[in-house]
């Protein structure tokens, strides 16, 4: 399991263990539990990052549904991931506020 926060102000569920809410900046959040294994909803490899990015790309952005909990936008560790949609992913870390996933290695 992992900790998620529910914002008391805007209601957004975000995958991190403490506030502030990344969507609206409110400090008041409630910690909850969510699965740390999810299903890949979709993915893309970003090859042209925006100007204000410190990265040059490529990197993989993924949308992941955590158990029966929230759907979150994060990264897959493999910079040039190639799917498929529907694979099981494990949450490996939260780096600078961004959830980082890897394909699940073992069946639990």
């Amino acid at each position: 399991m992992t900790t998620i926060i529910e914002c008391a102000s805007c209601g957004r569920l975000s995958l991190r263990d403490a506030g502030p809410c990344p969507a609206c900046g409110a400090a008041k959040v409630t910690a909850k539990q969510a699965a740390d294994r999810g299903v890949l909803v979709s993915w893309t490899v970003i090859r042209r990052p925006p100007k204000n990015s410190t990265e040059t790309g490529p990197y993989t952005v993924a949308v992941v549904r955590l158990g029966d909990g929230p759907t979150v936008c994060g990264r897959i560790k493999n910079a040039e991931f190639a799917g498929p949609v529907g694979v099981a992913l494990d949450l490996r870390a939260i780096e600078n506020g961004v959830p980082v996933f890897e394909p699940a290695r073992t069946v639990r």
């Binding site: 990344p22 609206c24 993915w43 042209r48 990052p49 952005v61 990264r75 961004v98």
Partner: peptide, 26 residues
């Protein structure tokens, strides 16, 4: 973009439609 997860994860508008494409194809 929404200032939460989407921006922090490094999403772009081409990226959003890459996500939509892979979901539609699947």
């Amino acid at each position: 973009l929404d200032p939460g997860d989407d921006v922090m994860a490094g999403l772009t508008f081409p990226g959003l439609f890459g996500l939509i494409w892979n979901a539609h194809a699947a």
